[in-house]
Design a protein around this nucleic acid. Structure first.
Lengths: 127, 127
DNA sequence: CTGTATCCTTTCAGATACTG
DNA sequence: CAGTATCTGAAAGGATACAG
């Protein structure tokens, strides 16, 4: 393992930290996971089932990144077998409002987007 | 060229259109571009310079996707050499409020994120 | 100026197998 | 259950060259 703490960290750091943050939260899965944790803590397998279509490897990676960023809290319960609970930190909670506006927008406007796509694709075929 | 209109469209379509929309706008570059167009229309090269670190190929692709989604309007001015102007559609404008909350959050909280990262990395090294 | 096409390298992400 | 390790195929993305 190289000396860098985590991949996807040094992008081409435009020496702009905002960009770095956007690179993290502007991620397909991170957005979904954050949104999923909005209604309370959840365990690994629950998150995975709830989101659907994410491999355990990727879920594990994204959760680790979110934990590193201080957005998600990882709590291990020393049971047998072990249970791990993920929840939002208070910092994470401040973010979810913004995330919620995005997902809300997506729900509200997905039809318009699909119509626009049909229009665009139609134009491309007809000329 | 295959029959599909555009790449990055059929992901593993969870038959959930919201997911599809999130996959598009939850994109590193799309977020940046949308945010960039927030203060008015801009030409291709201006956007590229303003964002920095994006290749023309990728900028071109992302803009095309955003145009297809009805979020961005592409206007060609028949000058020599040709000038192309990109601006937000009214649909795009409704999205930028959500995007703005995200970028605003990033600016407000990037320090906390960085501190969290240092804490996390410190833990990993010290044990 | 605004792209598209090609090549090529890096990264992403699924499948599988294995550990605590 | 909650991961990690490895292998592999797919996709993203930069560099360059070229077209309208």
């Amino acid at each position: 393992m190289p000396s860098r703490p985590h991949p996807a960290f040094d992008v081409y750091a435009q020496n702009c930290p905002t960009r770095m943050v956007l690179n993290r939260i502007g991620d397909k899965w991170a957005l979904l996971i954050l949104d999923c944790l909005r209604d309370g803590s959840a365990r690994f397998s629950v998150i995975r089932r709830k989101i659907g279509g994410i491999s355990q490897k990727v879920l594990s990676q994204v959760l680790k990144n979110l934990e590193r960023d201080g957005l998600v809290l990882r709590t291990v319960h020393a049971t047998v077998p072990v249970a791990v609970e993920y929840s939002l930190t208070s910092l994470g909670e401040t973010l979810t409002q913004a995330v919620a506006s995005l997902t809300h927008w997506a729900e509200q406007h997905m039809e318009e987007v699909q119509e626009a796509q049909l229009r665009y694709d139609g134009k491309r075929i007809d000329g």
